Amino acid sequence: MRYIVIGAGAVGGTIGARLHQGGHEVVLVARGAHYEALKRDGLRLITPESSETLDIPAADGPVPTRDDDVLVLATKSQDTIAALAPWPSDLPVVCAQNGVDNERTVLRRFERVYGMCVWLPAQHLEPGVVAAHGHPYSGMLHVGRYPQGVDELAQRIADDLGKRGLVGRATPDVMRWKHGKLLGNLGNAVEALLGRGAGTAEIAERARAEARTVLDTAGIAYSTTEEELARRGHNVDIRPIDGVTRGGGSSWQSLARGSGSIEADYLNGEIVLLGRLHGVPTPVNEVLRREANRAAVGRRPPGSMSADELLALIEA
C-alpha cells in the first residue's frame, strides 16, 4: 500500500516521514519552495531526539495512481476541494485535518472517506523542514470510517501509523473525537491574534463554553479533555528541540508564514454555523472568525492585536 500525503506541511510532513521510517511507500505532495526543497534535498524531520533527512519522493501535483494508493489529506480545510480536485474519486481519502466539515465535503465525490483526529504538535516554517515536538511519540492519530465505524482499511492504516514514531488507533466514533478536538482548536484564532499574552486563556475558554452550548443544543457528541488526556497519557508530551524556537499552532503558523488565509471559517466558523442553525448566539466565535480572517488577508503577523481590543469587539 502506498500513502500519498497531500499537503506535506507540519502534520502531513510528520505523518509522511514516520510512515516512510516505518518501511512504507510514501509520496509527499507540496507546492512552491517547499516542494523544490523536498525534491532537491529531501525532508528534514527534527524531533527532540534527532534530526534526520529523509529521501522521500515528492511531487507538486497528481502522480500516476495505483489501486493500492491511499490519499492522506493534510491541507488546511479551506484548501480541501482544490487539493482533491485532480485526484481519482475511486481512491480512499483520509482527512488528517482539523475541523469536522472536511469528511462530509469529501464524501460528495469520494466513496471511501476516513476521519483522522490529529494530536501532533509540529511546525513548518522553513521549506523542506518539519519540527515535531511530541515525545516519546510525535503524535496520536485516531482513524475511523466516516461517518462511523472501523473497517479493514482503517485498522491497517492505524497499524501502519504505529510502526514508527506515532500512536495509531482505529476508532469507530472518530467524529466524536474530532468534535472534541474542535473545541480545543477554537483557541487557535486567539493565539494567532494575541500570541500567548495575558487574556488569551480567558477568551479561548469563552469560545469553548459558547461552543459546548451549541453542540449540546444540536445533540452532537464530543470527547472531553479528560478523555483526551487519558488516551494520550504520556505518549505525546511536548518537548523543546535544541536550536528550534517553538512558535504557535497551525493558525499562528499561517499568520507567521503570511499565507494570506487561515482556517478560522472551519473552526470558529463551524460553531457560528451550528449556532445559526439551532438558534444559539455565538458572538465570541463570530468575532474570532472575522478578525482571524482579517489578519490573514492583511498579512498581519501573529500577536498583532491586544486582548483589550479583542474583548472590546466581543462585547460590542
Results as ranks from 00 to 15, higher is better:
N185A: 10
E205S: 12
A307I: 07
L183C: 12
C95Y: 07
V100D: 01
R231W: 12
D79C: 10
T14Q: 03
L120K: 00
P64F: 02
L19I: 03
Y146A: 06
G23R: 01
G168V: 06
L71F: 11
G32E: 11
E270V: 04
G12H: 08
V244T: 08
P48N: 03
A82I: 02
R18A: 11
D67M: 12
G16S: 09
R108M: 01
R104Y: 02
R299E: 12
A59Y: 03
A83Y: 09
T200Q: 15
A189M: 07
T65K: 07
R212W: 06
V27H: 09
A256F: 00
R232D: 10
N285Q: 04
P147C: 11
D265C: 00
L166T: 04
L19P: 05
E152P: 10
L84P: 09
L288I: 02
R208V: 13
L43E: 05
Q148V: 13
L125C: 02
D41Q: 15
V5Y: 07
Y137S: 09
P240S: 09
R246K: 09
H20K: 04
E126P: 01
I262V: 13
E263G: 03
W252V: 06
P57G: 07
S50N: 13
G115L: 03
I6A: 14
G32V: 13
W252R: 03
L120Q: 05
L288Y: 00
I81A: 15
A122F: 00
V150K: 12
S223M: 06
A312L: 10
I4K: 08
S261D: 13
L19F: 00
A316L: 12
H135N: 12
G275H: 05
V214T: 12
Y35E: 14
H179T: 08
Q21H: 00
Q78M: 12
L310S: 13
R169N: 15
R246H: 11
A30K: 07
P136Y: 00
Q21N: 01
S89D: 15
G298D: 15
L310H: 10
L194V: 07
G233N: 13
G9M: 07
V167M: 12
C117R: 10
L153E: 12
N293W: 00
W252I: 05
I271Y: 10
Q253S: 12
A296M: 06
L229E: 15
A204I: 00
G32Y: 10
N285L: 04
V118R: 01
G247N: 02
R239I: 02
V5L: 15
G199L: 07
G197E: 11
G243T: 10
L277G: 06
L288K: 00
V236R: 02
E270F: 02
A316F: 10
L255K: 00
A307S: 15
L120A: 04
T200N: 10
D151R: 05
E111H: 10
T75P: 11
A198V: 14
T282H: 04
P92W: 03
L311C: 14
E126W: 01
W177H: 13
G187S: 11
S77Q: 11
V94H: 14
E103W: 03
